[in-house]
Nucleic acid binder design. Structure first.
Lengths: 114, 114
DNA sequence: CTTGCCTCTGACGTTAGCGTCAGGTTTTAG
DNA sequence: CTAAAACCTGACGCTAACGTCAGAGGCAAG
């Protein structure tokens, strides 16, 4: 499929998809005229990118993760990085949960003092 | 206390504290010579800011929250905003948890295919 | 054929939360 | 008293993930 279709189906912008290619995340095949063509599997990858971005990983980190994601094979360094990111995200969940509690307290006070 | 002490005690930079003041979040009293002086309660507020920032709220949003945080009183509009932010954070926790699961899968594969 | 939508490559703009000088005053330690 | 350390106000820099033109080519329909 071409870039517009992938954009609408995956819910990201055309610009974002070209950006992913710039970053080495999602390199498309090209038609003779130079237009990008993506396989169906690109959809899944874009979803993975969104998850990772929303988890606070950088493009560079995600690029480093792609070999693992594609082949399921890793070296020692990659496994360390995987755990590092995992732990970072986990800590972030903890932080967010803490923020959530604080907001809930404020909300509770707001409800009893209307 | 002065800005340097608050910075070290709260773990944020002096620049950040001045930035908070720019954003209307934490306005210090001034000595005659113009130096900022903070009460002890500033520590708690800075912690609150950090929680909110880390939860993805903007300075503007946090500024809107401060009346609730300070006085415990809210109007209808503020209560709506509180719930909106709360829900946003909750959704983000869900996203992060999803990202965490994906990473865990990759890690699991990595461990069984060393 | 041509209309209209899609795509291409640059390349500059944006936003937020600070970092980092520069150049000058104030406070503190000895 | 003096030197170091801390503080002040601008003001420019930075990064990341795109947004947003501009200008030009590509492609299915009528």
């Amino acid at each position: 499929m071409r870039i517009g279709e992938l954009a609408t189906r995956s819910g990201v912008s055309v610009r974002a998809l070209r950006y992913y290619e710039e970053q080495g995340l999602l390199i498309a095949e090209r038609s003779i005229s130079g237009q990008r063509h993506y396989p169906e599997t690109a959809l899944e990858k874009v979803g993975f990118f969104q998850d990772m971005y929303s988890a606070g990983l950088t493009s560079k980190r995600i690029a480093e993760l792609m070999p693992c994601f594609n082949t399921g094979h890793t070296d020692a360094e990659q496994r360390i990085m995987l755990r590092t990111e995992r732990d970072r995200i986990h800590e972030r969940v903890t932080q967010l949960t803490s923020a959530l509690r604080r907001l809930d307290e404020v909300i509770a006070v707001a409800d009893t003092h209307p």
